[in-house]
Nucleic acid binder design. Sequence first.
DNA 1: TGTAGTGTGTCGTATACACTACACAGACCA
DNA 2: TGGTCTGTGTAGTGTATACGACACACTACA
Lengths: 119, 119
Amino acid sequence: MNDNGFGGYIRQRREELRTEDSDFSLRKVAAAIDVEPSYLSKIERGDLPPPSEKAILALAKALNENPDMLLALAGKVSTDLQQIIRKRPKLFAEVIRELKDMPDHAVLRVVREVRDGNW
Amino acid sequence: MNDNGFGGYIRQRREELRTEDSDFSLRKVAAAIDVEPSYLSKIERGDLPPPSEKAILALAKALNENPDMLLALAGKVSTDLQQIIRKRPKLFAEVIRELKDMPDHAVLRVVREVRDGNW
DNA sequence: TGTAGTGTGTCGTATACACTACACAGACCA
DNA sequence: TGGTCTGTGTAGTGTATACGACACACTACA
């Protein structure tokens, strides 16, 4: 009944880092992201759902992971991205739906064309 | 203290439609989107925050408005867009942030290039 | 054999979210 | 003047979100 992509992922990542550096015990990481150890424990095992965006971002820093990816695993989308979309909702809705089924390389090409300013 | 872009907007829109068609009384619309009249009343006046995504989508249909725009007014982003983003978080995060400050016409040009399949 | 560190189990809580139920006052009009 | 609309005010409810506090058992090691 419990999903647990998020919890499993961060537990694995934490234990990976822990083999090289003892600053990655559950308690240390919990302190680093400013939550109680028992809370983090339950999250890692999927006993509780993923925490707030704030805690996830702190976790991404602590574990040196990509924030957008961790948020996605938690079923969320960064509020800063949402803000960008909300400023021009029709435009961004169209873009995103248009790119939905495009292969990665095609999408990346769009990004580069835009970045290189050939417009 | 209360924002009220959303409530004000839909009230105005509803009253606009009401001048031509009496199916747009507060009670009728409330029934159409399946909420209590008092609830819709409070929302329109900004006494309560915007309703759920489900109700907003129903409202968009009832008032013949763009759903993504109404959701944005309500401070939300459609879950179907979020789902698309969450499937390839790093990719879409990059695209969206890249397009953030681009003028509409530049973004639209990208969309059209993609749609016309020159890739 | 104490003490420091490991993860975990139980219980409680504050806040927000998304509403419903019902009663009420005023306008309309038959 | 009785019924039928209109919008609105008051009060309460169920569920989800996002945690904290604290005690506990186990391991290591000095």
